[in-house]
């Protein structure tokens, strides 16, 4: 009696172990090599990290589910490249935790959106997309201009980013909140510190046109304006020509 029970136990647990083993090997073999990919990936010494304001904007992009309708991944197809710009390189999203490559283009790809439109256009478009693009089916994001941006915890956000591998310095973490406020206020006295920590090319302006309050709109537009601009790697003389699959 007892021995049969023991055998039965072995069988169900054996089945469970078999399933786990068989299933995990597939994943391991496919994914493991990718963790050594750094050896083969393009180098981009000029790659910079997101400023605290841009990171906050990125988190708003995530919160509002923008990734569900906009990809940030230009494929190596000719029409993709002609429509959106040089195809995306792996290195360009190496600081993206998580990546926002997307899976659907209900709206256009945004990988190289930065600098394509003015801040005023972006703000008007976010407040009511149909004011600037009559055919658009994008939601209106009026509340972004009404909500004050939360900045008190940005230091912690940068510190966490460093834990997962983004090279933020101690100074950047310590000044995260001040830097976020400074980036949206070109007249303030924090601007020098900000550009010293993140580079002269950092966009410093009142993105939503109101210098008094730093809103979620400021953060999101700051993020949109940096898309595709963290490194020039993709614009360097083409490493390989785009695969032409369009006839």
């Amino acid at each position: 009696m007892f021995s049969t029970h023991y055998k039965l136990e072995r069988k169900s647990i054996g089945l469970a172990l078999g399933i786990m083993l068989v299933a995990s090997i597939g994943g391991l073999v496919e994914i493991a090599p990718l963790f050594t990919i750094d050896e083969t990936v393009e180098a981009a010494p000029d790659m910079r990290t997101y400023t605290p304001l841009e990171l906050a904007g990125r988190n708003i992009y995530i919160r509002e589910g923008c990734y569900a309708c906009h990809s940030q991944m230009i494929r190596t197809l000719q029409d993709d490249v002609e429509r959106y710009g040089p195809y995306s390189l792996a290195v360009e999203s190496k600081y993206d935790h998580p990546m926002l490559w997307g899976s659907k283009r209900t709206g256009p790809d945004l990988a190289r959106l930065g600098g394509k439109y003015s801040d005023a256009w972006q703000v008007a478009h976010l407040i009511n997309p149909r004011d600037v693009v009559p055919e658009s089916v994008m939601p209106a994001y009026g509340w972004l201009a009404r909500n004050r941006l939360r900045t008190d915890d940005l230091g912690k956000h940068l510190a966490t980013q460093r834990t997962v591998g983004v090279p933020y310095t101690d100074a950047q973490i310590a000044n995260a909140e001040a830097d976020a406020l400074a980036q949206a206020n070109p007249d303030g006295d924090g601007v020098d510190g900000l550009t010293e920590r993140y580079g002269k090319a950092t966009n410093v302006r009142s993105f939503d046109g109101d210098k008094q309050v730093v809103t979620e709109m400021d953060a999101l537009v700051a993020y949109l304006q940096i898309l595709g601009k963290l490194t020039d790697a993709a614009h360097k003389p083409a490493p390989a020509t785009a695969e032409a699959s369009t006839k």
């Binding site: 935790h97 998580p98 990546m99």
Partner: peptide, 13 residues
């Protein structure tokens, strides 16, 4: 809020 352990290609895969 949390940040995913993986980034970029690894995260996508």
């Amino acid at each position: 809020k949390s940040y995913s352990l993986f980034s970029g290609v690894q995260d996508a895969m």
